[in-house]
């Protein structure tokens, strides 16, 4: 019987800002290469029975803060399940939506939204948007790797005692003042890297699938993916980053 990976795509219509569907395509393509079937379930406010533990991978794309309260109300009953989920299973949360999984979100108009409190971070909406490239090193599922992507920062993160996901080589990261990017909590990745981060960085996608294989007691696929296209892209982007004009404080000075 075909082995199936179950993916939960959280609020795909509501949280749809930066071509985030590409991340699903990356997961599907890598799973297919290894001979697995991928079953994607879209979770929205009308989903009556949602149990995070029914899935092998959860993806929550970036969204407009305007919708956060409605989503927080929906997800609050599943808070403990989500916390249990990220202890062993991979979850990817990107962009503004990271704030939803944190504690309090302070809006630009000084109002506050109470987040899910799954990760201990405080967040505040910025008055202006900051967009730039983002380049950092990180470790996931025991593998060291470099991630390159872009960032449209509308919310600053203060990650307090949480572990950062990445160590910045270039970019704004959590708030432009520190050397770190995102948060990793258990197997949950909470990152500012937008759009199809898993397309541009297939080495991360591979590790997510490797982890799913371990969780499901499947043998870990040995045959490496051909990442030559993405490696060339990464190399070219690093050249761009190294020569670009920037007003960011250098990482070493933070």
């Amino acid at each position: 019987m075909e082995q199936t990976i179950k993916v939960g795509w959280l609020f795909n219509n509501m949280f749809n800002l930066h071509g985030d569907r590409g991340n699903l395509l990356a997961i599907q393509a890598e799973a297919k290469r290894r001979g697995y079937r991928v079953e994607v379930t879209q979770i929205n406010l009308d989903t009556e029975t949602f149990n995070p533990l029914d899935f092998d991978f959860l993806f929550c794309p970036p969204g407009e803060i305007e919708h956060f309260e409605a989503v927080a109300v929906y997800l609050e009953p599943h808070r403990n399940e989500l916390m249990a989920f990220i202890e062993t299973r991979p979850m990817l949360v990107t962009g503004t939506t990271v704030a939803l999984f944190g504690e309090t979100i302070k809006r630009d108009d000084q109002s506050e939204i109470i987040g899910l409190g799954i990760i201990e971070i405080q967040t505040s909406e910025n008055h202006v948007v900051y967009g730039d490239d983002l380049y950092y090193s990180c470790q996931y599922n025991g593998k060291e790797m470099e991630i390159i992507g872009s960032q449209i920062q509308m919310i600053d993160l203060d990650i307090k005692e949480e572990s950062p996901f990445g160590r910045l080589k270039y970019g704004y990261g959590n708030n432009g003042k520190t050397k770190v990017e995102g948060v990793i909590s258990g197997k949950g990745i909470f990152t500012n890297t937008l759009g199809p981060v898993l397309v541009g960085n297939p080495w991360l996608t591979e590790e997510i699938i490797n982890l799913i294989e371990v969780n499901k007691n499947w043998p870990v696929w040995e045959e490496q993916r051909d990442n030559s296209l993405e490696l060339k892209s990464q190399k070219s982007k690093i050249v761009h980053i190294n020569k670009k004009e920037t007003r960011l404080k250098s990482i070493s000075e933070r």
Partner: peptide, 18 residues
């Protein structure tokens, strides 16, 4: 192409996945 409206110029092709 590289988005070059103002500094910093940056790379964004992710809208192509929409």
């Amino acid at each position: 192409y590289v988005v070059n409206d103002f500094v910093p110029h940056y790379i964004n092709t992710f809208y192509a996945f929409d």
